[in-house]
Structure formats: C-alpha cells, structure tokens
C-alpha cells in the first residue's frame, strides 16, 4: 500500500496551486511511478524551472532544486554529469521548457543526457496571470494575445524527437493511471526521456476561453487526442486536428553521462 505522504514535505502545505489545476494529478502519478520503481528517496533529484508546474519540486521529499526560468535542464545536466547514478527528474512547463528554455531542451535531447523531463503543458503562463505561451492554440485568448495568437504553437514531442531524445511520449491528466505507466517507462529509459503532459489551467486559460469548469476541461482533453497505437490503424482524415498520446518514440542509444564516465574510467585504466 502506497503511503503518498511519505514522499511529501507536509510542512510545505497547503500548496499554492489553484483549485482545479491539473498539476496535482501529475504529481500524484509521478510519486506512484517512483514508488512502483522502488527508487530510494535519497537517489532521486527533482529539478524544476519557474512557473506553476515548477513549484512542484518544493513539495516532494527528495533533493530538490528550484532553478531559474527556463534553465532546469541545464542545472540537471550538471547534476547528472557529477553523479550519473542519481535519477534526475526535471519538471518544467510549456513556457519554461519551450519558450525561454527551448534551447536547453533541444540540446539535452541531442546529448541524450539521462534526465526524465516532464513538460506540463497548460497552454498558457499561469503563474504570471495568463499570458500567451508558445503552446497557446491558434484562436485562443490570453492577456497578451487578446484576439488570439497568430503564431503556430509548438508540437513539443515532434520537436524533441527531431532533436534526438531516445524516449518521447505524451499523456493527459484525464488518464492518471496511463500517465503513471508513461512516467515509469520514461524513467526506465536510460537516456533523455521527454514526456509532455496535457494539463489544464482553469483559472486563466479555461476562464478566458470559456471552457467550463475544471472537470469540463479535463474531459475535453479526451476529445482532442488519439492513442498512438489506435492512430496507426486509422485513416488520416480521422486524425485531423488530433494530438497523439502514448509512447511516440523509443529508440535507446548511449546515455551521455554514463558514456562520459566510462570513457574517463578507461582513460584512468590506460594511465595505470
């Protein structure tokens, strides 16, 4: 039986997320995944950037590092290089990971450094009051895009796959059990694992765009996605406007920090 409180810093509660925010569902799935993998709390490090999702690092009882806006992957790369034996999990948001931190994301993927990156996508900047994100869909309103953006949003999974990540997946907060399985698979991949999680922001994105209550918004996720396995059997017209979920790409290749460690060990052996 999982005692989820064991993984929480109860002294940090109450948390600062809004009622109806989907990020707590992700946190639950993450902790269950860590529990099912039987990882010791001492060997897990959680690193995050700036934004609502990045606040999650403060609530969990591991070594945790709440960094600067957009840079958690760069900090995490230093940790993983220094201690390749640690399980390093990065929590970032769509603004943090794809806008200000986009460069770090593609380079972490290219290096295939052994980090598990959870990108919580709520399609808006929530912490600062609802400004446009690089994921805000065409036609959706934000405070800095009052008539909706004219910019095409990123498909983060395709971006990260192209950059070289060895594991790419997408999950939704509507399916917490599936999400947990995806997080387990992501952590198990030794290289760079990327998991985009569609979350919701009822306070800003939902309210601005008249998307109903939080439950309505979570239910709506299901309408917009098709599981990757099912998608393979469907004709293209049925996939129009849909996002794929599940494991989208998994092609293991040598992990950066371990490869480096191995190469210096060999160098040491030669020197002796």
């Amino acid at each position: 039986m999982l005692d989820i409180q064991k993984y929480l810093r109860l002294e940090m509660f109450p948390h600062m997320l809004c009622p109806g925010c989907g990020h707590g569902i992700v946190l639950g799935a993450l902790l269950r995944a860590i529990h099912s993998l039987k990882l010791s709390q001492d060997e897990v490090v959680v690193v995050s950037g700036i934004g609502c999702s990045s606040r999650l690092s403060g609530y969990v009882d591991f070594d945790t590092l709440h960094t600067t806006h957009g840079r958690p992957l760069a900090f995490a790369t230093g940790i993983k290089m220094a201690r390749p034996e640690l399980t390093v999990i990065v929590i970032t948001g769509d603004g943090d990971g794809l806008s200000i931190g986009g460069n770090h994301l593609i380079h972490a993927a290219r290096r295939n450094v052994g980090l598990t990156c959870l990108l919580l996508n709520n399609e808006i900047y929530g912490m600062t009051g609802g400004q446009a994100a690089p994921t805000t869909p065409l036609g959706k309103i934000s405070t800095t895009g009052p008539t909706g953006p004219f910019e095409t949003p990123f498909d983060s999974c395709r971006l990260v796959e192209a950059a070289g990540a060895s594991f790419v997946a997408r999950g939704i907060t509507y399916e917490p059990a599936t999400l947990e399985k995806l997080i387990v698979a992501a952590i198990q991949n030794p290289g760079f694992s990327f998991l985009e999680i569609i979350s919701d922001c009822p306070e800003f994105f939902g309210r601005f765009n008249r998307m109903g209550n939080p439950a309505d918004q979570i239910l709506a996720q299901k309408q917009n996605v098709v599981d990757a396995k099912t998608a393979a059997t469907l004709p293209p017209e049925r996939l129009k406007g849909k996002m794929l979920t599940g494991i989208l790409h998994h092609e293991p290749r040598p992990e950066y920090a371990a490869s480096y460690q191995e190469s210096i060990a060999q160098m040491g052996a030669q020197a002796r």
């Binding site: 760069a74 230093g78 940790i79 290089m81 770090h104 190469s263 210096i264």
Partner: peptide
C-alpha cells in the same frame, strides 16, 4: 578527464553556469 573530472561544452553561457551550479550541488 585524466583526473576523473568532467568537462561539458554547454549550449550557451547561461546553461554553462547552470550546469556548474548543478555539479557543485552534487558535490563537485
């Protein structure tokens, strides 16, 4: 690498100091 240390060329200077801080927190 000859003394068991780690070198990484990061994608920019922002990332460079970030990685340095990460490694220092991890004890190096």
């Amino acid at each position: 690498p000859r003394v068991g240390g780690k070198f990484i060329q990061m994608e920019d200077e922002i990332a460079s100091l970030a990685a340095v801080i990460g490694a220092s927190l991890a004890g190096m």
